[in-house]
Write a protein that binds this DNA or RNA. Structure first.
Length: 505
RNA sequence: GCGGGUGUAACUCAGUUGGUAGAGUGUCAGCUUCCCAAGCUGAAUGUCACGGGUUCGAGUCCCGUCACCCGCUCCA
């Protein structure tokens, strides 16, 4: 029996890595390829290769089990295309836009909807007067300005005029850049909705417009009562869904972090409004624990609570679970108290009641919603980066992906130590047996040490080797990835051995 | 969207004053091999990101486009 490598002999080298290194590893080993690569790629789009699709699938499966294998959460898979009114109710048609302007002089960039805040009331007034003078003779436009000021509504009338399609540009000409002070240096505002539009049916007219969903949440909200009644659920309960979402981002960035097509793992938990804080705190803790339980380095995880003044229009409380990526801390999951905003809006826009009759208190109310919204693609990137280590073993370097075994794309590899004496035949039998329940890989190419290292780089947690002793006592060695230590296990118990390891870790 | 950088084999990179491409690693085949990237022999793989231009001739010079990385901006 050969001695196994002892844990103490492994020296972890500097494991700081860069996005470029990860992109390179991801491509080389088949985790992620650039979309449409042979045509030069498509900005911000990526394809998951053979190992990547397994990792992603495992992440989603672990999430699904954690979130729906419980008695108070049910699953759902809603259509990507939904009635366009859904997005009016959700606020996306109105709010999901980013009108931006640049100063041509100093290159400062401003969001149109907050630009007005940069000017004092006095300056605003002056600019409006100048605009009116310039409009000399165009009664219709001057009247429009007066009307806006006469009936300001919720928004500052100055902002309303800035965003007016006829008046905005003219008003901009009267303003100085808040940064460099130059006048009339702004570019035209580029305003576009972040939702992808497409058309239902072959005729591309405005009546046929639908959107690719920018979040999966709305599919859950509109099915709230369907799920509740079909599954005979009482509050509090949740609905979970995994699926693609699309946002026409201005800039894509950082590999998988900001893309236009991405996958969400969302769960909306419906609660009595009086219990919202309790459940918000509960899910916050649960979700952080989930990432830790699957092996993410705890010191690279943190909450980022949103300050009250920065909360989205629908939220009462919000926090992000952040991971420390090579480019800095980035959100991998958001937990929000969405209050009764969404269901209330859908009641308003659909005309249908979405109230819940709570027998325990004998009253009807619109539930509050606690949302947990994780990015599957972002989690994928976090799990991949976090698992990557470069180590020194007996003076040789090895690259290893220390995935949690349940996330590992390949669960076990099977090797004949040498290609003779019937070892390949036995190894093939083991492979066939394990393949019934696990994603496994057979390799008889080259020296066994090289095969171990290849599997290390794919993140395979166990390697099974058929050796001389196997021929005598029908046992094989199981080599564990991280410690590189070996254990002898009877061939007919291998499947059970591996499955129990996967279940219990 | 702005500024900077990069783009040559699967990966990391060389490639001279312009003369139609190399290395290492990896991959594949064979030999050897009883446990951690061993050795030997052999092999395959490139529209030099894409499109124009200059030139007798462009990986190399010029223009445009695309993509990725870094910074800024942004992220209802």
């Amino acid at each position: 029996m050969n001695s196994s490598v002892q844990g103490g002999i492994i020296i972890e080298k500097n494991s700081t890595t860069t996005v470029e290194n990860i992109v390179s590893l991801a491509k080389r080993r088949g985790f992620v390829f650039q979309s449409s690569e042979i045509y030069g790629g498509l900005n911000g789009c990526w394809d998951y290769g053979p190992l990547g699709v397994e990792l992603l699938k495992n992440i989603k499966e672990e999430w699904w089990k954690a979130m729906t294998y419980r008695d108070d959460v049910e699953g759902l898979d809603a259509s990507i295309l939904m009635h366009p009114r859904v997005w009016e109710a959700s606020g996306h048609v109105e709010n999901f836009t980013d009108p931006m302007i640049d100063c041509k002089q100093c290159k400062s960039r401003y969001r149109m909807d907050v630009l007005g805040d940069s000017f004092s009331e006095k300056r605003q007034k002056k600019a409006i007067e100048a605009l009116k003078n310039k409009l000399n003779g165009k009664e219709e436009l001057v009247n429009r300005i007066d009307e806006v000021y006469a009936n300001p509504g919720d928004e500052n009338p100055f902002d309303t005029i800035l965003e007016d399609k006829d008046l905005g540009l003219l008003l901009l000409e009267e303003l100085n850049c808040p940064q460099c002070g130059n006048k009339n240096t702004f570019t035209e505002a580029r305003k576009f909705n972040l939702m992808f539009k497409t058309f239902v049916g072959p005729v591309e007219d405005s009546g046929a417009v639908v959107y690719l969903r920018p979040e999966t949440a709305q599919g859950i909200f509109v099915n709230f009562l369907n799920v509740q009644s079909a599954s005979r659920l009482k509050l509090p309960f949740g609905i979970a869904q995994v699926g693609k979402a699309f946002r026409n981002e201005i800039n894509t960035k950082n590999f998988l972090f900001r893309t236009r097509e991405f996958e969400q793992m969302e769960m909306q938990f419906f609660v009595n409004p009086k219990e919202d804080t309790k459940w918000y705190d509960y899910w916050k803790e649960m979700r952080l624990e989930w990432f830790k339980s699957l092996g993410i380095t705890p010191s690279k995880l943190r909450f980022h609570d949103h300050p009250v003044e920065k909360l989205a229009h629908y939220a009462k409380d919000a926090t992000d679970v952040e991971y420390e990526f090579p480019f800095g801390w980035g959100e991998i999951e958001g937990i929000h108290n969405r209050t009764d905003y969404d269901l209330g809006r859908h009641e308003e826009y659909s005309g249908k009641s979405l109230k819940y009759y709570d027998e325990s208190v004998k009253e009807k109310y619109v539930p509050y919603i606690i949302e947990t919204s994780a990015g599957a693609s972002r989690s994928f990137m976090a799990f991949l980066i976090d698992a990557y280590y470069e180590e020194e073993v007996k003076g040789e370097s090895r690259a290893v992906l220390k995935f949690h075994p349940r996330l590992a794309p390949i669960k076990a590899a099977i090797f004949p130590l040498v290609n003779k004496d019937g070892m390949p035949e036995i190894a093939r039998e083991i492979e066939a047996d394990l393949r019934k329940s696990l994603k496994v890989f057979y390799d008889d190419k080259g020296a066994v040490g090289r095969r171990y290292r290849r599997q290390d780089e794919a993140g395979t947690p166990y390697c099974i080797t058929v050796d001389n002793q196997t021929l005598e006592d029908k046992t094989g060695t199981v080599r564990e990835r991280d410690s590189m230590e070996q254990e002898r296990v009877a061939i007919d118990q291998l499947a059970g051995y591996l499955l129990s390891k996967l279940r219990n870790q």
